[in-house]
């Protein structure tokens, strides 16, 4: 704003400029950081996915959709994608059901509910490195406590868990369910608080038992929450990396390699940024589709309510 220009403005215009500037001054610190370190990279990830580049001084080369053709032709990528879906299938539904069950249990007026809630939520805030290390030992195939227990109850050939190509993903799923169900339990608990007590009172007058109340009041009333949890869990499963990395490193063989593990290795071990970014765009597409389903669902429920 030069002096001369400002001089030619009416006081009204001056005030408008001032208000604008004050507004901008509030958002600028976050906006600059966010545009530079989040928004710009998001846009640039699309560019990188059609380029050939190894992050060196050499210039990028435009290759069109070759990177996509490359990864879809790559057996490892296809299997990583399939593993991610398998992981999601094994994880989402059990986590959801257990979270709902825990929430319903804790919604009873019992003494010490807070302690139980803390215990169930605790795995969620524990770091994946620590949690992965301890579960890896629990799953130790020969002397680990889990297999000792299984042998004790009469299973002679318990699964070899993280060292078996068939069971490694199951082991990761179990840890994931254990770690995340407490979080979704809290989400459910919050929703349960919102169900009016009158509904239950009316049902009691009609002679409904606890099971019927759960079946015909609680679960239907929680449908929007269940939908939300389903979406969140599915997205979370598609983003899985740390747990796999610390428990199996994608092995044995490539049997637990997931989408993000593939992207990570392509990018930061072999420095093939093009194919890695193409993989990232595939992840983006998956998340986008799930998010669009969520929007439609939310619209539907806000109309019904």
């Amino acid at each position: 704003m030069s002096e001369k220009k400002a001089g030619g403005l009416t006081s009204h215009q001056k005030r408008a400029i001032r208000t604008n500037l004050v507004g901008y001054s509030f958002i600028i610190p976050n906006l600059v950081g966010y545009s530079l370190f989040v928004f710009l990279p998001v846009c640039f990830s699309f560019v990188l996915s059609v380029m050939e580049w190894d992050a060196s001084q050499a210039p990028m080369k435009f290759v069109g959709l070759a990177n996509f053709a490359d990864i879809f032709g790559d057996r490892v990528f296809r299997s990583s994608f399939v593993h991610t879906i398998q992981y999601a299938l094994m994880t989402v539904i059990p986590t959801l059901i257990l979270a709902l069950l825990l929430a319903v249990l804790l919604n009873n007026k019992l003494k010490g509910v807070a302690i139980f809630r803390t215990a169930f939520y605790f795995p969620y805030i524990a770091s994946i490195v620590a949690v992965g290390a301890v579960w890896n030992m629990l799953f130790q195939p020969d002397f680990g406590p889990i297999n000792q227990f299984l042998k004790f109850i009469g299973i002679d050939n318990p699964p070899r868990w993280v060292v078996s190509t068939d069971w490694a993903m199951v082991a990761i799923s179990i840890v994931s369910i254990w770690k995340y169900m407490g979080y979704y339990m809290i989400v459910y608990l919050a929703a349960l608080q919102g169900i009016s007590g009158e509904l239950y009172e009316a049902a009691s007058l009609d002679g409904a038992n606890s099971w019927q109340k759960l079946r015909y009041i609680t679960i239907p009333m929680l449908t929007p929450t269940t939908f939300f949890v389903l979406i969140m869990l599915t997205i979370q499963c598609f983003k899985v990396f740390d747990l796999v990395y610390v428990m199996t490193g994608g092995g044995p063989g490539n049997s637990t390699k997931t989408l993000v593990n593939y992207i990570y290795e392509k990018a930061f071990t072999s420095w093939e940024l093009g194919p890695a970014s193409a993989g990232a765009i595939v992840l983006f597409a998956v998340v986008l589709v799930i998010t669009l389903i969520q929007f439609r669902g939310e619209k539907k429920w806000s109309r019904d309510m």
């Binding site: 545009s35 990279p41 998001v42 983003k239 970014s277 765009i281 986008l288």
Partner: peptide, 22 residues
């Protein structure tokens, strides 16, 4: 701009972000 990018997982843009910071 914030709304459209909140749902984008970090794993999608971690590569360009790393390139930028490098």
């Amino acid at each position: 701009m914030y709304v459209t990018t909140i749902a984008v997982p970090w794993q999608v843009y971690m590569i360009p972000q790393f390139v930028l910071i490098s």
